[in-house]
């Protein structure tokens, strides 16, 4: 069990009485991108929420850097190096870009917060010109970049992104995927990515996980899933 930043074993999770995810197990090595694909409603978002502590975990184990974090509440997970970007409403629409960044650094010391905001603005310079714009006036792509910047402020080691390219035009989505590759290659982050448009995402990722009806139907190198004609046809609309 060496080298894994995240290990999930036999995880059962859902919302109150609604059991959604069944016996999920997988490992993720430091510095890799894992893409989770699968039909709508198959439990991808629920799996992320369970790992982050928002959905209810009935049984199973989530360990992060070797320690059991299964029962940690979300704000504690955020403090120890996990970040989670929700599928919807992941920025404060009524707040300016600057205020959103201040909120993302809420728990940090004043001077440290200022430095971190400066850092993420250097990674994503387009935000610099929009600092005083309300987030709701940003384009879809800019909004997702703001959301990415917000998750990066606390220097997380593992970043979970739920359909970040969801409502974006294909060209913009491609740009955003490049930014996600940059997270891994330049900033040395580990990334879990949930994606609808499976092909493009699988091509940039190292590992893949296919969810069908709340269960993991494939877990392995993403190349393997891309080349699996049967699964690809059935669940991913490839070819």
């Amino acid at each position: 069990m060496v080298g894994y930043i995240l290990s999930v074993s036999d995880l059962n999770a859902g919302y109150g009485r609604f059991h959604i995810v069944f016996d999920a197990s997988f490992n993720l090595a430091d510095g890799e991108i894992l893409t989770i694909v699968g039909p709508n409603g198959s439990g991808k978002s629920t799996l992320l929420k369970a790992i982050f502590g928002i959905a209810t975990v009935y049984s199973g184990l989530v360990s992060f850097k070797g320690s059991d974090v299964t029962r940690y509440p979300p704000h504690v997970k955020a403090r120890i190096g996990l970040a989670y970007l929700p599928q919807t409403d992941n920025v404060f629409a009524e707040l300016s870009v600057r205020e959103n960044l201040v909120m993302a650094s809420y728990t940090l010391e004043e001077s440290e917060a200022r430095d971190r905001i400066e850092e993420v603005l250097n990674i994503y310079p387009i935000l610099k010109q929009k600092l005083d714009y309300k987030a709701k006036s940003l384009s879809g792509g800019e909004r997702q970049i703001l959301a990415l910047a917000m998750t990066l402020i606390r220097k997380p080691e593992l970043i979970m992104l739920d359909e970040p390219t969801g409502n974006l035009a294909p060209i913009i989505a491609k740009e955003l995927l490049k930014k996600i590759v940059q997270l891994r290659d330049e900033l040395k982050k580990t990334v879990i990515l949930v994606e609808q448009s499976a092909k493009a995402a699988l091509e940039i990722s190292d590992r893949a996980l296919l969810m069908v009806s709340g269960r993991i139907a494939y877990e392995g190198p993403s190349k393997g899933l891309l080349e699996d004609v049967e699964l690809g046809k059935k669940y991913l609309g490839l070819r």
Binding site: F52, I54, P74, H75, A78, R79, Y84, P86, D89, N90, V91, F92, A93, E94, L95, E99, V102, M103, A104, Y106, T107, M150
Partner: peptide
């Protein structure tokens, strides 16, 4: 003020505010 901005943030989206440690 930071707390004032956090008030507006919590009113708009309490679950996101909680995720951020507010």
């Amino acid at each position: 003020t930071k707390f004032g901005i956090a008030m507006r943030a919590s009113i708009e989206n309490p679950s996101l505010a909680r995720v951020l440690g507010i």
